[in-house]
Design a protein around this nucleic acid. Sequence first.
RNA 1: GGCCGGUUGGCAGAGUGGCUAUGCAGAGGACUGCAAAUCCUUGUACAUCGGUUCAACUCCGGUACCGGCCUCCA
Length: 463
Amino acid sequence: MKVTLYNTLSRQKEEFIPYDKNEVKMYTCGPTVYWYQHIGNMFAYVWADIFQRTLKFADYNVKHVMGLTDVGHLVSDDDSGEDKMEKGSRREGISVWDLAKKYADQFFKDTASLNIQRPPTVCPATHYIQEQIDAVKKLEENGFTYQTSDGIYFDSSKDPTYGELAKLDIEGLCAGERVEMAEKRCKTDFALWKFSPKDEKRQMEWDSPWGVGFPGWHIECSSFCLSTLGEYVDIHTGGIDHIPVHHTNEIAQNKGITGHRVVKYWIHNNFIVKADGTKISKSEGDKMLVENFVEKGYNPLAYRYLILSAHYRKQMKFSEDLLKMAQTALERLNEKVLELKKETQEISETTHAVAWLNKIKVVLFDDFNTAQAITVFRDSLNSDLTDSEKLYIVQEVDRVFALDLGKEIQILIPENIKELAEKRLHARQNKDWAESDRLRDEIETLGYSIKDISEGYEITEKK
RNA sequence: GGCCGGUUGGCAGAGUGGCUAUGCAGAGGACUGCAAAUCCUUGUACAUCGGUUCAACUCCGGUACCGGCCUCCA
């Protein structure tokens, strides 16, 4: 079944045709591990995960690579300002190496809780210094660089197609009005290798043919991508904010190194915004972590469900109320699947079931329309399919949704609660409604809910 | 200022040139000792003004408002 996706390069939906039909190569820009990754940051990784899962669902073998920026790059894109990692290191009083480890660990913990599959290859920049030096050397050989007193720069004027991804107005940008250019020839030029300051010993610095220093930010992704996936990469994902600078520069570097286009499809996710329409800022990021919501009693997968219920190219609103709504919807959906499992253990892949599954695939493969896919999935659960056919659909769609549908959550009910519940059952059998209601209140006060069913009762943790 | 994108029922959010989105919340009913859960029923949304059309929320153009990027950023 064919997959179509929206390519930022052409600004339209295109049929997905990989370079090599047997293996899809996909690259995702990873986090900079100098600070927490809040739920807004996680949005991009949930989507990257859905993209790769969807492609696997469409029977492609997917080779997914993600970068990890653990080398300090500078606070500003125009290569000035402080170094983020060094700054973070001072803030926390630990080495940059420990800082990187701390936030990388946190990142992978959070992605795991959201059922994001860890890409088989993750490239920390500090492990790929030689590759980055080689990439800069290649650019130098091909005549795309120049040297200033503080580093080696990419000469964007050498690339006639520079800025095509973002449809940048180069004339306007290159004029260099109020922008601090230092020794750069054009505003769109950027550092490939920065020299360490003469009077300062950096915690992270390496030898290079041009002198001791460290690699620029943009060269990371190009060199990871080229060294792990080769010169022909099918898909590159990232946030829309990367279009004008980071990805624009990646494209220019790739072209300068290989002499041809490397990435075929660029996929960009939008942002989540708060209910008032504004972005989550970096400074409040530590209050908007996945684990903050887990502490408040939310299932991280409720956030995943919320994300799936909207389109990746549109802004998604986020608030605690919306998360609560998503959690309720997910719980009920899950209940429904658990009911099915009570009825049967079997999973039958019949033509009827496959036909329904194909309906889901059609919308999912049309630019990753997960919201529509969930709706069709719900329709299938309400259809005339048998329970075991429905379970087949559940099993299949959850390969992409990854919402742990039908996973029983075992909770331990304390003995005293069980005793109260038994007492209440007796009271009910004796039609002592006053005592029964009193016991129910007592159980509620202790943090549990009780509901009567035909065979007796059910206890759950109170929400 | 430049470049993008958006405006759908109480909330969130898909989608479509003519036909129910869906979810959450709400209302009514069934069931229940009462609840809970579940089931059934229910709500004539598509910013605005023009145009194209037999027919537009859906296509085209103008207007208003909102947001993003241009500065670290998913």
